[in-house]
Computed example of a mutant assay.
Amino acid sequence: MKLISQLGIILLLYFIGELIVYYLQLKIPGSILGMLLLLVSLQLHIIKIEDIKDVATFFLNNMLILFIPLGVGLASQWNLISKEWFSILVSVFISTFIVLLCVSLIIKRKKE
């Protein structure tokens, strides 16, 4: 029963995010907004880490399963990917560099 209630908390915030996006016609995915709501709830101690820890640990330990649909989607779009491989590769390297730079700047500021 504990796992079901923990999953319920995560799903509730996900659905709230989806509803907000639907009614306000926002341009971001509802799942992202739901996870932002979860982050804010955790930061403001509205939800305690212990309230979702077991389900979150399960999802993190089994994250590879969640990437199977992505792999299938990539395989089904191989014709497009093979035509645009260089642009995709450049985009991946540039975005990875930007993420690493931002994270390093954030860590540097937190240490000061």
Rank of each mutant, 00 (worst) to 15 (best):
W78Y: 09
W78Q: 04
N79Q: 09
N79C: 05
N79K: 09
N79I: 08
L80D: 07
I81G: 00
I81M: 00
S82Q: 12
S82W: 00
S82P: 03
S82F: 02
S82G: 03
K83W: 01
K83A: 04
K83I: 01
E84S: 13
E84Q: 10
E84H: 12
E84I: 11
W85H: 05
W85Q: 02
W85S: 05
W85K: 04
W85F: 06
F86W: 06
F86N: 03
F86A: 05
F86L: 10
S87L: 11
S87K: 10
S87V: 09
I88E: 01
I88C: 02
I88T: 02
I88M: 02
I88V: 06
I88W: 00
I88F: 01
I88P: 00
L89W: 13
L89F: 11
L89N: 08
L89M: 09
L89V: 03
V90R: 07
V90E: 02
V90P: 01
V90L: 12
V90H: 01
V90Y: 09
V90C: 02
V90F: 10
S91Y: 09
S91K: 07
S91T: 12
V92A: 03
V92G: 00
V92Q: 05
V92L: 08
V92K: 03
V92D: 01
V92E: 04
V92F: 12
F93P: 00
F93C: 04
F93R: 01
F93I: 06
F93Y: 06
F93E: 02
I94Y: 03
I94C: 03
I94M: 05
S95N: 01
S95F: 09
T96A: 07
T96N: 06
T96R: 04
T96C: 05
T96Q: 06
F97G: 08
F97Q: 05
F97H: 04
F97E: 06
I98E: 04
I98S: 01
V99K: 00
V99A: 03
V99F: 02
V99G: 00
V99C: 00
V99T: 02
L100A: 12
L100Y: 13
L100I: 13
L100K: 13
L100E: 12
L101H: 03
L101I: 04
L101E: 06
C102M: 12
C102N: 12
C102A: 14
C102G: 07
V103N: 09
V103T: 11
V103H: 09
V103E: 13
V103Y: 13
S104D: 08
S104R: 07
S104N: 10
L105T: 08
L105K: 14
L105Y: 14
L105E: 13
L105D: 06
L105G: 02
I106G: 07
I106R: 06
I106E: 08
I106C: 05
I107T: 12
I107F: 13
I107L: 14
I107D: 10
I107G: 08
I107A: 13
I107N: 11
I107Y: 11
K108N: 15
K108Y: 15
K108C: 12
K108T: 14
K108S: 15
R109T: 15
R109G: 11
K110F: 14
K111P: 05
K111L: 15
K111Q: 14
K111C: 11
K111S: 14
K111R: 15
K111D: 11
K111E: 15
E112C: 10
E112P: 10
E112D: 14
E112I: 12
